[in-house]
């Protein structure tokens, strides 16, 4: 009996994990963020916390009333980011500049907290930042 023939939930999950480890699933995206509430958010990149197991970036976004609100984006681990071509320098070089980040909203309703999947810098370059929960990239995760 192979994976594809087992309808059981447990076995289905087992099969999903069996093929290979989903490399960015260290922490619980599915528990904390809503993959159906993702959007692109444009604002000014202000700072970065370059940490494991998750890095964070902060973007000032103007509200409808015109006031700037700080939006927090959770990223993958810095080891994943570095292996994916994203260095801390890329963030620092763009402090004070307008960036667009695609993020999925926190499930708990906490305002201005997202998990990021990519960032677009003013020079047009797009970098992966986290899991491909929407299937935007056609990758394994």
């Amino acid at each position: 009996m192979t994976c594809s023939h087992k309808p059981s939930w447990f076995l289905a999950v087992l099969c999903a994990f069996a093929a290979a480890v989903p490399a960015l699933a260290h922490h619980s995206f599915a528990a904390e963020f809503d993959a159906k509430k993702c959007s692109e958010i444009t604002g000014v990149l202000t700072s970065v916390d370059w940490q494991n197991p998750h890095a964070y970036i902060y973007v000032d976004v103007k509200s409808a009333a015109g006031a700037a609100e700080s939006v927090t984006f959770q990223l993958s681990s810095i080891s994943n980011l570095r292996r994916g071509g994203m260095e801390r320098k890329n963030m620092i070089d763009n402090f004070g500049k307008a960036v667009t980040v695609r993020g999925c909203a926190a499930k708990n309703g906490e305002k201005n907290r997202y998990a990021a999947s990519f960032i677009k810098f003013p020079d047009g370059k797009i970098y992966r930042l986290g899991q491909d929960v929407e299937g935007l990239f056609g990758t394994n995760n």
Partner: peptide, 30 residues
């Protein structure tokens, strides 16, 4: 030879027998 998560290279399928968990364990997991 590198992280597979952000790769489009397809993962090789892995066929395994179902894990023979005891009924009470199966109920708990499900």
């Amino acid at each position: 030879g590198r992280p597979s998560a952000w790769s489009r290279t397809r993962r090789e399928p892995l066929e395994e027998e179902p894990v023979p968990v005891r009924p009470e364990v199966k109920a708990k997991l499900e």
